[in-house]
Computed example of a mutant assay.
Amino acid sequence: MNKPVELDLPVDGGTLRVLRFGDGPRVAVAAHGITASGMSVSGGARHLPDDWSLFAVDLRGRGGSTGTPGPYGIEQHAADICAAAERWGGGGEVALTGQSMGAYVALRAAVRRPGLFSRLLLIDGGLPLPFPEGADPDAVLDATLGPAIARLAMTYPDEAAYVDFFQAHPALGPYWSEDIEAYVRYDLMGPAGELRSRAREEAVRQDGRELLTQNAEFAKNVVELTVPAHLLYAPRGLFDAAPGMLPEPLVRQFAEHLTVEEVPDCNHYTILMGEAAGVVAGRLGG
């Protein structure tokens, strides 16, 4: 179930690329991380039962949707996710999931259109991130996502050089797999000798600012949830070191509004693209 069919979803301003994994009658829709693409869910999709189809949306400015114009932002991405659920949900129950930034997108979609979704699975995201009052969002983004943002402006002579760049990442290289490599290679575009990431920096920065400055809105969204929701979180973060993106005190603060589960021995990326992907599939398709 790890080789997707590429589909197009008409939306305001153009079309979005959607990757369909599987061909079963039960439907799930997924939203990815801030510089990622729908290919990031391929490991989890492979573990889903045969009666599932997983529709992973390439959000505006990423993957096969790199040329789809804005507006960007959590609200727009949530509307696009709802459009995918309407298009392929067949009027039935749709399971919704998102990882990292995609968890915030999925959370917003579930709050705005609860009737579309039967359950919500948040993966290492969705809870309000602490943001110092008066801080510059772009400076915070550069401090936390510096290497991920820097690669968006870089060019690479060939695919092997891009793979080498990712293999040097401390949270990915030690856990390298076919799923991670497929995700990395899918992200490339451009002519030979000048390959670059499909993720657009302007989209990443706009979405990143909202992730940092809308923490009160995200907290409100969690409290407002009416769709049954489950949170999976990793003990290690962006660089494979503890604490994770969602530290334990933050998780406990919101545990009365959704069920929570720490996935052992994984980081922010390998919770979805490593051996832990089987846990994700079990919670989504269970």
Rank of each mutant, 00 (worst) to 15 (best):
D187T: 07
A192L: 12
G134D: 07
N221E: 15
G193A: 11
T155Q: 10
Y162S: 00
Q167H: 14
N215K: 14
T226S: 09
R196A: 06
A182T: 08
Y186T: 01
R196L: 03
R196F: 11
P170C: 07
L232H: 03
V140F: 06
Y186C: 05
E159V: 10
M189Q: 10
A171Q: 01
F166Q: 08
H169I: 01
I149W: 11
F165P: 00
V184A: 13
D207A: 03
A150C: 05
F166P: 00
F218I: 00
V204Q: 01
A219D: 04
R209I: 05
V222H: 07
A143Y: 09
V163D: 06
R205K: 14
R200P: 00
R185F: 03
A143D: 14
E181Y: 08
E210V: 01
P191C: 00
A161L: 03
E210C: 06
A203M: 04
Y186E: 15
A139E: 15
A229V: 05
F218T: 00
A160M: 08
D142M: 06
A148S: 15
E210A: 04
V140G: 10
I149C: 00
R185L: 13
L145N: 09
D207L: 01
D142Q: 13
D179Q: 13
Y233T: 02
D179Y: 14
A143Q: 12
V163N: 11
W176S: 05
D187M: 11
A229W: 05
Y233L: 03
R185E: 04
D164N: 11
I149R: 15
L195N: 02
G173H: 08
V223Y: 08
A160R: 14
H169E: 12
D136G: 01
V222A: 12
A219T: 03
E181Q: 14
D158S: 09
N215G: 09
A161Y: 05
A171V: 03
Q167G: 07
E181S: 08
S197W: 00
E133P: 04
P157E: 07
A199E: 00
R205I: 14
A219E: 06
E133T: 05
R151M: 15
D136M: 12
P174F: 04
A219G: 15
Q167V: 04
D179S: 10
A192N: 06
A199K: 05
G134R: 06
T213P: 11
V140Q: 12
S197A: 12
L152N: 02
A150E: 13
E194H: 11
D207V: 03
I180Y: 04
P147F: 14
Y186K: 10
Y162I: 00
G193D: 09
P228N: 06
E194C: 06
D142N: 12
A171R: 01
H169F: 04
G146P: 08
A182L: 04
S177L: 12
A229F: 04
E133F: 09
L211Q: 03
A199H: 12
L188N: 01
R151D: 07
E224A: 15
A150D: 14
L152D: 13
L141A: 09
A229K: 07
A216Q: 06
N221K: 07
T213G: 02
